[in-house]
């Protein structure tokens, strides 16, 4: 014999439907913010960012060692001639290790 779902649900069924509708409405709200995905995760073996280690194999950056510079000279005919030269930076150390380290992990 087939089970017939009547139009007048029992209290238990009504409760189920209310819960279902609530879930549906909640779900609709969640979709508006972004579908919530539960993803498989694994713990980090190391909590240190790879970028924290100054390793040229895995990415490395420095301050640029020089910039270019346009000079102007007043020539004998009174006109101005422009010449471009580049200049090295004054500092000896170009290291920017702190930029790559990221912040301390939240406690």
């Amino acid at each position: 014999m087939n089970t017939v779902i009547t139009f007048s649900p029992t209290p238990a069924k009504r409760l189920f439907m209310v819960v279902g509708l609530s879930c549906f409405l909640l779900s609709t709200t969640a979709w508006a913010e972004g579908r919530r995905l539960a993803v498989k995760t694994v713990p980090l073996v190391s909590a240190q960012k790879a970028s924290a280690q100054p390793d040229i194999v895995n990415g490395y950056s420095l301050k640029a060692p020089k910039m270019t510079q346009s000079m102007a000279r007043v020539m004998a005919d009174g006109k101005v001639s422009r010449i471009c030269r580049d200049v090295g930076v004054a500092t000896k150390s170009l290291l920017v290790d702190d930029e790559r380290k990221g912040k301390e992990l939240l406690k």
Partner: peptide, 18 residues
């Protein structure tokens, strides 16, 4: 009066292997 730096420019950083 006869010579001057007009302007200079350059990238702020360089990098490799990213």
């Amino acid at each position: 009066q006869n010579s001057a730096v007009l302007a200079n420019a350059g990238p702020n950083r360089i990098g490799l292997n990213y």
